[in-house]
Design a protein around this nucleic acid. Structure first.
Lengths: 185, 185, 185, 185
DNA sequence: CATGAATGAGAATTCATTCAT
DNA sequence: AATGAATGAATTCTCATTCAT
């Protein structure tokens, strides 16, 4: 693995373990096993490094959300696939998921990055729009709609992360169903 | 206003504006208009100060959530009241709401505080339990259930905060309804 | 003596002893006997500190140049007084003199400072102008004229500083005379 | 041009533009368009590199000062030739001239280099000595004498470099004359 | 209580230098 | 020779905290 990747990984790990406010370069050097100067060959400052971690996490999540997505399936199937993908991504990549969830609205992340191109978002919106046209989904502002279903997954995952409860197959199904019921007619 | 309150307010404002990781005492002194030594007459360290901000925000929110709550009302009425209170609190006190939402799981906040007594939580749980007994709410793990309805409000508020959309009366109603549909039978 | 003065003095001493390129904050702290943070309460960066050293040296020299200057004296007397003052200042304050001489044209010193108000310069120019009007001084561009007489003193002092020769009364007189002859008719 | 020359040139340029204290290898690499390792094939350290720049500048100046010097000419002619050469060298090679002028007494330049063989100095001294013997030049300590005439040129050049004034033929003549009058009887 | 100058541990960053290719 | 990624010692600078007034 390249030094660059070592550094990005160590940074994400540290953010997850101790919170962004206590991540220092010194901790990053040690965790990534690189010399102190090395980081600065790749990232000109801590802010840039953290933003790059964010960018890569967003790309990773964007891909995961669309995995196995089949536009020829029925609307509800597609909805469930997308939601399931999000839930699974959160369960499998808790560090990335939490980092994105926590810092998407932080001033530390540059606005350009926050609004980076995101194909999965377009797919989500097209599903919601189609559902509303078909009369399956309630006629709510699509952005509101998106926040609702996203919020259900996000909140469930956070409870899971702090071990409030396990997330077995049944509870996963209940969660997906809840997010569907929340917006469907 | 007392110096103590000046300091707490300045701290919350700064956390909101720049994120906890960029809040320094020096910034707090200036914003609160107090001498640098003054803070230490009230708070023994930065961690204690931030935790106190958290504690007061939690107390404030706890009261707001139960405002006008009437246990003699019907179950759905009570549910709506609680959810409306949460949404309204978020809209009226965005700094406190966001701070609580963002840092409740941060290592910077002491575990005791995180689990501080919270009457509103008990009330929520009793409503959910009663709803499940009455067959109005689906038989899901109550903690899951709580996360779901909480997650809807939280997510809607975050979109509102970044001005994705306004929150007028109609959209508020849609949000509350969505949170109810998500868990009701 | 105030900490601020301690720092300025230590900085000037170090520049004189080792040259600007090897002056570090760490050396300044030790020499000035102050904590490392203290410097930054007074000067926001090394550049600012060095510029302040320059500014104070210029003020000091400006005062010294005009010491005992009497506008009612004859022209040659006044010329000699000014030149003597410069020579004496250099001999008595070699660190300040050399620093000004070496860095007045350095990019490290801000242009505003380089062109700071300087009453002594005006006095010099008025003496030169008057001398030219009276036909005592050759009609050369006054700025050229100023550089010539200044250059004689400066160069003599540098030789003196590296102990090429002593500067006793006779040599001082010869120097002053040389600078006069250089521009007089 | 060889890499070695590229490096020496880039170094001199940087010293001129930003001052020795701000010259870093990284800047040299970029300006000279060589890889970072390349410098160390030619110079074992930064100090050695800078000293080599100094040495070459001194050699260059030494040659320029004696250009067209004809020992069979009259004394004043020879004096003027030498002074003119110095002035012309400064005007044509401001970077080298200023570097020599500024750093000849810096601890960064090795003492051996500072006192390197310099035929032009001997020539100067012989002219001054002869002038004194002939009663054309005042009987001043020859080192003082040398500093005086050198100082006039140096100072005039510095004013010219910061564009205080142009140096056209008339002003050049005035400068040479001034340096002669300063020491002549 | 209120203040702010002083502090020094430690964090961010620079930069000369090495070394494998 | 030429390169440039990697290094870590040295440097600049920050910031929570103390303490005398």
């Amino acid at each position: 693995m390249s030094k660059r990747k070592d550094i990005l990984k160590a940074t994400l790990d540290l953010i997850h373990e101790e919170g962004l406010q206590s991540v220092t370069f010194s901790k990053i050097f040690k965790k990534a096993n690189v010399g102190s100067g090395t980081v600065f060959n790749y990232f000109s400052s801590k802010e840039e490094l953290v933003n790059e971690v964010y960018r890569e996490a967003r790309i990773h999540m964007g891909e995961a959300l669309l995995e196995g997505y089949d536009s020829s399936l029925g609307l509800y199937e597609r909805f469930k696939q997308l939601q399931m993908n999000r839930l699974k991504f959160g369960m499998q990549s808790p560090k990335e998921y939490l980092f994105i969830d926590s810092y998407s609205y932080s001033p530390y992340i540059s606005p350009e990055l926050r609004h980076m191109e995101d194909h999965s978002l377009e797919v989500f919106n097209s599903v919601l729009a189609e559902g509303q046209k078909q009369g399956l989904i309630r006629p709510i502002d699509p952005r509101l709609c998106y926040q609702i279903i996203n919020g259900v997954i996000s909140s469930i995952l956070k409870g899971y992360f702090v071990q409030k409860y396990p997330l077995d197959e049944q509870q996963i199904q209940q969660t997906l169903e809840a997010s569907w019921k929340a917006i469907s007619l």
